[in-house]
Design a protein around this nucleic acid. Structure first.
Lengths: 341, 341
DNA sequence: AGAATTTCCGACATCGATGTCAACCGATGT
DNA sequence: ACATCGGTTGACATCGATGTCGGAAATTCT
């Protein structure tokens, strides 16, 4: 089937291709009457501009790249959903690109994308959004970037974030308000800047009530389930074990939960466990996990908006270099007041 | 920074742009000597052909579309990972497109993609791969399609699949071999054709040993966690409850597991529970879930191969209209022999 | 050696849109 | 009535690659 071109539309509408182009792109300087005719003909013929021709002549590709470190994580996939939804709603397509620093050819692969496709914009997620060399590569190629939850170069590019530190503080305060004092903390993957922020938030709340975290109650994890398991085995291996465990994300919290069950430690009666992220698994655990809802979907969508509006000059998010989205404490069933002993 | 074009390369190599084009695309009829020079210059200048110019002049876009119903599911995300990895390895980019039949404008959105982008190929995942109207839309626009685990129109397009029926049968045989006779079955979402196949496999194994599934032990689910919970509440609400539950996927199996714990039913001592898919959560549950490993990653990768090789005429998968990948029974900890009563 | 192929290579047109620019229009001001 | 001006419109060049085709060079065959 032969595709319909702008010339076909122009002929049928009795105008020049250029005029059709103007109408499609919402440019000024077209008589309302003609604009209406063209719009009608476009609809009648079900015409869609060819993305390649557009990309070649102008420099807009209508493609937005979403760059990931680990496309498997639920974090990545919820951001993707938000970005996907908003991108489609605004007539853009989403190209997914993994960036694997472990591979020696990551630089070449990135060049494939940066030089070959002419992305209208790119979304960088944590932790790759903190690689200066990456950001510079995008800048060299004039690809606008929005970063999600970056930890460094904060004044460099537009960004979307949430207040991890305040959220971790709030969660800690929740545990404190339940009477817990001996609270263990499982750190996340140090490559993610959020790890540091959550740790600081935990400390904030602790020091605010005059407590200092006991180093033996702070375990290094990596955001993966297994690391939660292992951290918990350490924590539950000493007597007495902490009365509460705050893991830096839900997957690790689930690991802690499973370890507790394996060790016959009742949750939440004997130990309260909380996570961070509000991943799907937080609801699929038993007991259901108390956690911080991170607005990943909204962050993905917001990133798309910022890219598009910066480009087109529209106003909704104009001038907003940094958009901070609200978190929420989700209280479910893995916590209860500390039982006085 | 001005981008490097094929003309720049040609000038530096002292040949015509057309010759450079030939070398890049591996066409015949170029002297080895010149081919080498051009290859060197391309590398030196780090030249990458502009995808849009290519897409416009030839009809190859180097873009492959991955079409989803529900991008959130772990099933979708593992296929995506496989497709992504292979696509990048073979110099293609992956464009992710959700197809939401619930939305009234799904047809229009699809047209955006089909008419606007000129995809080199499309991967359709279950359940949308069984929509005849969708497949026809792709055919109308000459976009080659590979379907993953389709249930209907089996002779229509190339496809990648696994033997759901045999897998379900094997799993059931595993339960039978442990001595279970009163086995409940939780059906999946009826829109997915795999639901039917898994159900048939279950029946195969049951009838092979002279059992007929008790209708009260067969509950309709929808592949979601909640439906597993609710199914289990029904199953565990009668006395005696079944000694084993086979849920059509891991998420529902997890629901069954959680329901068992809520009802103080010991797993696996009092009831064995098995799932299907080998999703990440199967390992993050406690006890770890016995399940069928579905080669989603490999299926995604295989689909990419089939699309590319069909197009280019290369041979590795040539002539293979249907590729069937092996499953594996993964025995973990949610099953044990039935305790004679 | 000369003719007939075959291989190699480049000039040129082309894909479908948009940027540039000049021509045209009617309205306004003098 | 005429110059001016801003809004409209279309002719034409352009983006960067590849398809077509013809001619030159190299090869094979009489």
């Amino acid at each position: 089937m032969k595709a319909i071109t702008i010339t076909d539309v122009a002929r049928r509408a009795g105008v020049s291709p250029k005029t059709v182009s103007r109408v499609i792109n919402g440019e000024a300087h077209v008589r309302a009457e003609i604009r209406e005719i063209v719009t009608r003909v476009v609809a009648e013929m079900n015409y869609r501009p060819n993305v390649f021709a557009r990309g070649l002549s102008s420099s807009r590709s209508f493609l937005i790249g979403l760059f990931f470190d680990d496309p498997a994580s639920s974090y990545a996939s919820s951001i993707q959903r938000g970005a996907l939804e908003r991108a489609r709603a605004r007539g853009r397509h989403l190209v997914i690109e993994p960036v694997t620093f472990d591979r020696s050819d990551w630089q070449e692969r990135l060049d494939d994308t940066l030089l070959g496709l002419r992305l209208d914009g790119a979304i960088l997620t944590s932790p790759i959004c903190d690689r200066t060399d990456l950001i510079e590569a995008f800048e060299r190629h004039d690809v606008p970037v929005v970063r999600i939850a970056p930890g460094s170069d904060l004044d460099r590019t537009p960004q979307v974030r949430m207040d991890d530190r305040a959220a971790a503080r709030k969660m800690t305060e929740h545990l404190l308000s339940l009477g817990h004092r001996d609270i263990a903390f499982v750190l996340g993957n140090p490559q993610h800047s959020a790890t540091e922020r959550r740790w600081l938030g935990f400390q904030d709340a602790m020091t605010a009530v005059g407590l200092t975290p006991d180093p033996r109650r702070v375990i290094q994890g990596d955001f993966k389930f297994r690391s939660g398991l292992e951290a918990a085995d350490v924590l539950f291996g000493v007597d007495p074990h902490p009365t509460a465990v705050f893991a830096s994300n839900d997957e690790m919290a689930l690991g802690v939960l499973v370890a507790a069950m394996r060790n016959q430690i009742a949750v939440p009666r004997s130990v309260s466990i909380v996570g961070f992220d509000d991943a799907e698994i937080a609801r699929m655990a038993w007991p259901q996990m108390t956690t911080i809802h991170q607005p990943n979907f909204e962050m993905g969508a917001a990133a798309i908006d910022m890219l598009i509006d910066r480009r087109t000059g529209a106003a909704t998010t104009e001038g907003v270099i940094c958009r901070e989205l609200p978190f929420e404490l989700i209280v479910r069933s893995t916590c209860m007041p500390r039982i006085q002993s």
